[in-house]
Design a protein around this nucleic acid. Sequence first.
DNA 1: AGATATTATTTGCATGCGCAAATAAATGTT
DNA 2: AACATTTATTTGCGCATGCAAATAATATCT
Lengths: 151, 151
Amino acid sequence: MNPMDLSESEWRAWQALLHAYHDVVRTLDRELQDEHDLTLAGYDVLLRLRSAANKALGMGDLAERVLMSPSGMTRLVDRLADRGLVERRPHPSDGRAAVVHLTDEGSRHLRKAARTHVRGIREHFTSRLTETQLQQVGRALETITGPHESH
Amino acid sequence: MNPMDLSESEWRAWQALLHAYHDVVRTLDRELQDEHDLTLAGYDVLLRLRSAANKALGMGDLAERVLMSPSGMTRLVDRLADRGLVERRPHPSDGRAAVVHLTDEGSRHLRKAARTHVRGIREHFTSRLTETQLQQVGRALETITGPHESH
DNA sequence: AGATATTATTTGCATGCGCAAATAAATGTT
DNA sequence: AACATTTATTTGCGCATGCAAATAATATCT
């Protein structure tokens, strides 16, 4: 008998999500921090900036993509800017907005960190699944975040 | 088109995992906290205790099952004990160990919280997937960490 | 039995985060 | 043009968490 009123498969999927996330994220975070002094969120900021139009994004956009609250993003960008990996400039036309730019230093740092991080994702996550499983997991979990059903 | 050197499916699965976890956990945590003054971890402690042999577990076992560090568990149990949901007793034979017991109050509280939480898991997670997807996700993510206890 | 290592748990401390309120600049209204 | 509303970002604050060191009790070894 599984606990609560969840079915076996519901319970297993739920626990597997929690456990997999915990293990993988924790491991990757530690690797990134030990080898490159970057938190996973910090890495993600650099990554999003690099793939953005002019290697720059507003605070709001950044927060949204990195799955962080605006206030959290303010502090995170503070730390990255202090280290010269990122630069906060005023928005040319909108006086309240700030634009975060990826610096050359940040670009270099990202390039180095990406090597270990991509290796890490493969080692601790994707290489343990078949291509079919990867697609199944991707499709399934993407429907979780998609729009609500009626109720 | 996709950043770094990950394949499309690797990237999608990875992002889907982060996003799904973030959204679901955040939502469920808030629900539980708003309606029952329980954090997800706190709920999990009560749940694990209920399904344990004598409705009691040692700190170490608890920490392991709830995916928390020993020190984190010390404080979490402190908070739950302060509210009378749990009781910390000395281990009868081992003087360094502590045994955490689920109180009647905690049992009642858990029963009430479980209703909304199970509903939440269904509403925000499992009901959005087919039974096949649930099993696929469970099996896939379990291989990330290794097999689970089933209950 | 006495010294040493191992184990279970708890503190000291620092960190990263989110919420709510504050600030400041834009937009909308009359 | 003056005033209210909305939007983008930043602070004030508190909290849960993990790591490393401290504590305390048990196991091991000779």
